[in-house]
Design a protein around this nucleic acid. Structure first.
Length: 677
RNA sequence: GCUGGAGUAGCUCAGUCGGUAGAGCAGCCGCCUCGUAAGCGGCAGGUCAGGGGUUCGAGUCCCCUCUCCAGCUCCA
């Protein structure tokens, strides 16, 4: 068998680890092997599992290191088993559902008598530490369907999983192994894989401590998990469906080293410190009084300045790119929402009607119907297409109470919304332009390139459009993304009910990914509103309609900015750009003069006229994360200079006032955006 | 909507066994006039989320409601 260029011959029945040792292929910490037979897809393989019985030339072998995404997933999967074993020990009668690795950790769902308490988690983790020391081995066994059913007869969820596999509901969503996943051996009838945790008993013989239905692979033994911890518990529906019973889920994480685990926990802690709700309060950006109601917020003056910079940028850019701004109301008669189909498809997300003068009015959950009315305000010619209607439209959605979450998920929010009416031959260019527009936006606001571009295809619940229409639109979106040169993935069945879409994500300063931009094709509304334009042939034609929001929600994007910049906005966005601090009251006159000079160049300045000590005033300026603090005293008055203390970077003394003003004015004019921090 | 946790001054938090509410910061007043992250003193600030109950007595125990947080489901 081969590993890279090396090859070696082995006895039949040799395990992956034996082969890797023979090949001298082990570097660093290995959790599993990767086996590829001929041109089959590679399969992750337990180190102690015998290699497939094929010719040496056909077999390729590689290692899976602990410090890779794939390696960590295996560590975490094994840790999930360890946790389930601990839960079984401490909570006899607990039923196990599923326990997969996820991004940054793992979970396992249990059906237990009562929900887990924080104390339970401590006890479970302590039990896991004890079990880990037992050096239990993970032993893989392939069993027949009937044997699996018998073995797990008292585990109703496992039985269900087996039955779901029977009827094809589950293929790979839940990892149960089964037919040799490598496709290397044709099994005799349906089989499942069981992993047994085996320890050496008091009498020196092997004893099975715990078993689970599982695809694997796993680390060879539980003591090979370098670092793990449990994080929290929460309810979770069986199979993720609301009509199913609620189980108790425990989240945990595992890493290749104590250091890596600590780094992860530090990152979580850092994210907590940056929470936009916390910073929004501390920096007086936002206010969420109970009197307002859930999911609604007030932008305080500081927050409003930041938001205005965002809005000014997008307004200017949309006009520059040929969009036509409109303004539309926040409510409309119910009839409009009947025509648009929102009452039919979206009613549970709409606030109830307001009865006025024998008519019912509704708050708008979307801007589209209004933009359509703007389009249909007169007869449209093919010559004027594409027509791009744009608005910062504030919408209201009656989100279910449990999902409201700061500004990330609000009940009232503002979309930088636009609807583009165009001919079919213009769709690709228009969509590509939207994607490029979004890239500019991310660059401007310091988010770099998109981290993920996903084209979502027709969902089961789609109501509009023929198959070939959907296919054509999906292809148009793909063509548009390819035109931009960005890599993309296909999210099957994740499109909106009225058409396919492109979602764009970006990563913030601490590596978190946010869904921001959405570009959607709509087949539904043009039909419902019977939108037409007059073509070259004098006949009426139906335009395509593209929805698009680049920030997505201004409020959400604002929150992402707050968290990503950690409240320390770049100068062009900062609520107060410069604070002038006189050393003592005697120098207040010069401080005011400096303030006036800066304001005359359009900068946002505050002069600290309080009678606090210098140290106190500087501290106040620093904790407000103001980009520049200027200290002025006798030296500065005489030389007409300022002592500059930037929020990021080293202080500079004796900077000529004029030079500082030009420097900052340029920085703002260029919207210079350093890396987030 | 569901599961769990939490709500005390503007903010961060203490409050013991059920015995009549406390600190720091911020605010206001005064003193200090200061060279790079907290000078000193004083004053004011509370329907302990709201409602009901138990009790001689409830921030504390019980019930209901609201809001927030961590998830599930749903989504910008």
């Amino acid at each position: 068998m081969r590993h890279g260029d090396a090859s070696v011959d082995l006895e039949p029945g040799a395990t992956a680890i034996q082969a890797l040792k023979a090949l001298d292929a082990i570097r660093g910490q290995i959790v599993a092997a990767r086996v590829r037979v001929a041109d089959h897809a590679p399969v992750a393989w337990d180190l102690d599992r015998p290699l497939p019985d094929v010719t040496a030339e056909a077999l390729h072998l590689d290692t899976i290191a602990a410090d890779t995404d794939e390696g960590r997933a295996i560590l975490r999967h094994s840790t999930a088993h360890l946790m389930a074993q601990a839960v079984t020990d401490l909570f006899p009668g607990a039923k196990w559902a599923i326990g997969p690795p996820i991004e940054d950790g793992f979970y396992y769902d249990f059906d237990v008598e009562r929900p887990f308490t924080p104390e339970d988690l401590e006890a479970i983790e302590a039990r896991m530490q004890v079990l880990a020391k037992e050096r239990q081995r993970f032993v893989r066994e392939v069993v027949a369907r009937e044997d699996a059913l018998e073995e797990f007869a008292d585990q109703p969820y496992k039985v269900q999983i087996i039955e779901l596999v029977d009827d094809g509901t589950i293929v790979s969503a839940v990892d149960v192994g089964g037919d040799d996943a490598s496709g290397l051996q044709a099994p005799d009838g349906p089989t499942f894989t069981v992993y047994r945790n085996v320890r050496v008993g008091a009498d020196g013989t092997d004893e099975v401590a715990w078993s689970d239905l599982c695809r694997g692979p796993h680390v060879p033994s539980v003591d090979r998990i370098p670092a793990f911890t449990l994080l929290r518990s929460a309810g979770a529906y069986w199979r993720g469906r609301e009509d199913q019973p609620m189980l108790q889920r425990i989240y945990g994480t595992a890493w290749e080293s104590r250091k890596a685990l600590q780094a992860h926990l530090d990152m979580v802690e850092e994210a907590k410190k940056r929470d936009h709700r916390k910073l929004g309060r501390e920096l007086e950006l936002l206010h969420h009084p109970d009197e307002l109601g859930p999911g609604l917020s007030i932008f305080l003056p500081n927050g409003a300045i930041v938001r205005k910079q965002m809005e000014d940028w997008i307004r200017d850019e949309t006009i520059a790119r040929g969009y036509q701004p409109v303004y539309t109301p926040h409510i409309a008669k119910e009839d409009l929402w009947r025509i648009s189909g929102h009452l039919e498809n979206y009613a549970e997300l709409m606030y109830p009607g307001m009865e006025v003068e024998n008519a019912s009015y509704r708050l708008k959950p979307m801007n589209c119907p209004f933009h359509i009315l703007a389009f249909t305000s007169r007869t449209r010619s093919y010559r004027e297409l594409p027509v791009r209607i744009a608005e910062l439209g504030t919408v209201y959605r009656y989100e279910r109470s449990g999902v409201v979450n700061g500004m990330l998920r609000a009940r009232g929010f503002t979309q930088d919304d636009s609807h583009i009416f165009c001919r079919d031959d213009q769709v690709v260019d228009e969509v590509a332009a939207c994607v490029e527009f979004a890239r500019d936006l991310y660059r401007t606001f310091g988010l770099g390139e998109p981290s993920r571009v996903a084209v979502s295809t027709r969902p089961d619940k789609s109501i509009a459009g023929h198959d070939d229409t959907w296919e054509a639109a999906e292809q148009a979106l793909i063509d548009a993304v390819e035109k931009t040169g960005l890599a993309y993935v296909i999210d099957e069945g994740e499109g909106a009910f009225y058409g396919p879409k492109i979602d764009i994500h970006a990563r913030d300063a601490i590596g978190r990914e946010w869904q921001l931009t959405t570009v959607q094709v709509d087949f539904n509304l043009p039909e419902r509103f019977d939108i037409t334009y007059v073509g070259e042939d004098g006949a009426k034609h139906r335009p395509y309609m593209v929805h698009r929001a680049l920030f997505g929600s201004i409020e959400r994007f604002f929150a992402v900015m707050v968290e990503s910049f950690n409240g320390a906005f770049p100068t062009w966005l900062a609520p107060v750009q410069v604070k002038v601090v006189p050393v003592a009251a005697d120098f207040l006159g010069y401080a005011d003069e400096v303030g006036d000079v800066l304001r005359a160049r359009g900068l946002r300045v505050e002069v600290d006229a309080s009678d606090a000590t210098l140290g106190n005033k500087i501290r106040a300026a620093q904790t407000s994360k103001t980009p520049y603090t200027l200290v002025v005293g006798a030296n500065e008055v005489d030389a007409r200079t300022v002592a500059v203390r930037p929020y990021h970077g080293d202080q500079r003394k004796d900077v000529p006032l004029d030079a500082f003003v030009s420097e900052v004015a340029d920085e703002v004019a260029e919207r210079r955006t350093p890396a987030h921090g």
